[in-house]
């Protein structure tokens, strides 16, 4: 319990530090510091409201304190382009990013764990001699390029799948859940999810393989063989169960990292998600939106880093039953 509390405190420290870095980062941008929140196309009343809300006419220290008060309340100001609250925009696109990330990372990890365990078991075989370089090569490929190749083949070449976006134009849905489970959405999801899954599978595969190779050397695996237990049971319930611990941690870390790392895949497929919102906002100098999207991506990353720590504690009895 004590160690969990320490971990939690460390997480809060990191959150605070990253928010602080973000505050100063957005004062690095060229031009007038009030530009972080105020655009000349705003009405006079809007400008005044934002000046007050973010203390833009006051000292840097006061601005910093106000910034924190606002961040804690999820208040990031108003988007320059759409003139809508940043928070609303982010929550509109978040389901798209989560659907894409969770689906592809789940596929990648299931595939990676199974194939990694299999390659460890078939150590020294042709499957390994071909498989390992292939996986390394896939892992070396830029995500956006994988996406471009898939697009060129399946969307433009064969015309089987849509070339971008999350839904066809003009579609109407009664709820977000309806939209996310519609065949139209799923058809749009296939290519970006496949791209991301292809990119992500290398890590769990290689990690699982090397863990399995270590675990297969352990005495308890030899003992299980001496007990005459069936080979499948030794591989799955003893070797794989132990080898899986670090992979589960990597899954949580990967989930956190890929929400932010999705920027390129979301851009290639014009996927209306958090990463693409960030890229568009930065490109069009929509600072409040960029800041909000960045903070959100960081929040997810940091929380998932913490969850990964916790998961390890829960799953390993050596830690949980200390």
């Amino acid at each position: 319990m004590r160690s969990v509390a320490i971990r939690f405190a460390q997480m809060l420290l990191v959150l605070w530090a990253v928010a602080t870095i973000l505050f100063f980062l957005f004062r690095l941008m060229p031009g007038d510091p009030t530009l972080a929140y105020i655009d000349t196309t705003f009405t006079a009343e809007q400008q005044e409201e934002l000046m007050r809300q973010f203390g833009l006419d006051r000292s840097l220290a006061e601005q910093y304190l106000l910034y924190f008060a606002n961040v804690i309340q999820g208040e990031f100001g108003t988007s320059f382009r759409s003139k809508r609250p940043v928070f609303t925009i982010i929550f509109e696109v978040l389901p798209n990013t989560l659907a894409l990330t969770v689906l592809s990372i789940t596929i990648a990890y299931i595939f990676g764990v199974l194939v990694g365990a299999w390659l460890a078991w078939r150590r020294g075989s042709i499957a390994e001699a071909v498989g390992i370089p292939l996986v390394l090569t896939l892992r070396a490929a830029p995500e956006f390029w994988l996406g471009m190749v898939l697009l060129a083949i399946f969307a433009f070449g064969l015309g089987w799948l849509p070339s971008g976006g999350a839904n066809s134009a003009g579609m109407q849905f009664s709820s977000t859940f309806d939209r996310l489970t519609s065949p139209d959405f799923l058809r749009h999801l296939i290519l970006p999810a496949a791209t991301l899954a292809l990119y992500l599978q290398g890590l769990p595969l290689l990690l699982m393989r090397s863990n399995m190779l270590d675990v297969l050397q352990e005495d308890y695996v030899m003992m299980a063989r001496m007990k005459g237990l069936p080979e499948w049971r030794i591989l799955l319930l003893h070797a794989a169960r132990n080898a899986l611990l670090p992979v589960v941690t990597a899954f949580a870390l990967g989930l956190g990292a890929s929400v932010g790392g999705n920027v390129v895949v979301e851009t290639v497929f014009s996927w209306p998600g958090l990463g693409r919102v960030l890229v568009d906002a930065v490109a069009s100098s929509d600072y409040p939106l960029a800041q909000g999207a960045f903070m959100f991506i960081a929040l997810i990353l940091i929380v998932m880093n913490f969850v990964a720590d916790l998961l390890y504690t829960v799953l390993d009895p050596r830690v949980s039953h200390g």
Partner: peptide, 23 residues
């Protein structure tokens, strides 16, 4: 090591994008 934690808490590509855009 806390500095390392903080660096790992910053989303990689978004940070590079923002820095490249601002600097």
């Amino acid at each position: 090591m806390r500095l390392a934690d903080i660096a790992l808490g910053i989303p990689f590509l978004p940070f590079v994008i923002v820095l490249a855009a601002f600097l």
